[in-house]
Design a protein around this nucleic acid. Structure first.
Lengths: 274, 274
DNA sequence: TGGCGGTCTCCCCCTGGGGGAGAGTCAAGC
DNA sequence: GCTTGACTCTCCCCCAGGGGGAGACCGCCA
């Protein structure tokens, strides 16, 4: 019988913490070679070291203690590890994929945030461009703009993870109405996503004049007026539906709202996407 | 003031469990619009729904509640989210990478296991081939083979995550010695890995006769004899060091040990790797 | 024999809730 | 108005994988 190691020394040898060693004993994964009955001191020998090292290696591979128990059981019987390890592999692969998906989603979010910051620092001038076609979950109703805080949450809750962009609102009449506007509440969907319990529609592309409005949504009036004046000056005919996209919503600081206003038009323009 | 939702209805609307809603209130993340002072019933309104939805979206992105708290605080002030989200992104990216590394390591392990199974089902015949050069952590000492259970764990513990293959043992004398053999205990290292506190050496490639021995390591004698007899029959001169690679170690079931025996030789062979 | 460092057990803490007990509440039907 | 069934309340224990620390022993060296 060789040298005996107390728990602290064993910890240094194996890289497992003292707490972990005690836990693994309690879980029946790694029993000390001897436990002094009077003092309760745990003593390990060289024979315990390979098992401890295996344990550490598996733990560092992110196996749960339960999975480790299974692997060790099969290992000590010389049985096949393939099935156990394949299960673990599947779990870890899913974990990695999930984290990776989150990273990608966060990147998208960060890009949108960065663009919003950019818009706040230097609001883009009035521009003309084609809005691309987009698949949306849509809820059409008569009502007022301030219903947004009621409608969008429902829509977002229904679409869940299929949401692929900032929500927007279509105004089907050009005249401003306080409380009986004909509105479509829209949420862009990821390609291929098919949420249930909601009407899905494909919006065609459309040529528009666009401006980004900075400030709370009650104050968009003058910005709309600029768009109408612009088209009028170019002898183009405004069309419907108007689109208000809520790029950034602030709850307390009124200054950092961002709304993209897009006014479609018909008339002299030949389609030209440059 | 619009409709009020009790906690169960709110749960259905937002997709957050009742338990979660209560927890988020306790953590100060989502306060119900009204709590009945006499009954303690929580009542939510439409105004609470967007926040709840944001909360759920962030949680589904794997943010911790603490991270969510930070994001919501900045969100409600319209402040920049970039820093917070970048931190979260870094954490998640590391998490994904770590899980991915584990998956790759498990794949390697599974391949080795599969090969070991293969060897157990159909032991490969005696083969001649070149062992490739390999970088190893090495500990040379006089002793006995059964010291393996003492020496390898130390070596593995020292090299930690740099280990890149099955450990093996070099025998620097061709004669069998019970308890005073001149041995090198070796652990292959990953390319570029530089573990501390251990001697690292590059072993040259060498031409060998190889056989895989199935059974406990005490029983390798006859297999070594086969290798020597094979070389003798071909009029080749056995050389040193002999290499015993421990492909698979079983603790209880003596039948599933696997040891690769490699005997280098010099003589008539021209180098030919075909 | 004293001292110092190591070790023991026991308890609470973290995350993000799940499960359930026992008691109180709301709304609808009769 | 009363009953009933569905909700909801608070409170407590549970999961993994340990970390931190309190108070009490233990082992070894001078």
């Amino acid at each position: 019988m060789g040298r005996m190691y107390a728990i602290g020394e064993m910890s240094r040898i194996t890289g497992l913490s003292v707490k972990a060693l005690r836990l693994y004993q309690e879980k029946g994964l790694l029993e000390p070679s001897r436990v002094d009955p009077s003092s309760g001191y745990r003593y390990y020998t060289e024979r315990d070291i390979p098992l401890a090292h295996t344990l550490r290696a598996l733990r560092d591979l992110r196996l749960s203690l339960e999975e480790i128990r299974g692997v060790l059981a099969e290992l000590s019987q010389g049985a096949s590890l393939a099935e156990q390890l394949a299960r673990v592999r599947a779990r870890l692969a899913e974990e990695a994929a999930s984290a990776q998906r989150s990273v990608l989603a966060l990147d998208t979010l960060l890009r949108h945030q960065a663009q919003a910051e950019e818009y706040l620092r230097a609001p883009p001038p009035l521009l003309e461009h084609w809005l691309p076609p987009v698949r949306v979950a849509v809820h059409r109703a008569r009502g007022r703009y301030s219903d947004a805080s009621e409608v969008f949450p429902r829509l977002l809750a229904t679409c869940g993870p299929h949401v692929a962009g900032a929500p927007f609102c279509l105004l089907h009449e050009a005249e401003y109405r306080e409380d009986d506007a004909d509105l479509s509440w829209c949420v862009p969907l990821a390609p291929g996503a098919t949420p249930e319990g909601v009407h899905v529609e494909e919006l065609p592309e459309v040529q528009t004049a666009v401006i980004v409005h900075s400030g709370p949504p009650e104050s968009v009036g003058p910005s709309w007026a600029r768009l109408f004046a612009h088209l009028h000056a170019k002898e183009r005919t405004p069309s419907i539906p108007l689109r208000e996209t809520y790029l950034r919503v602030a709850t307390k600081d009124g200054a950092s709202w961002l709304t993209e206003l897009a006014l479609p038009w018909v008339g002299s323009g030949l389609r030209n996407r440059t």
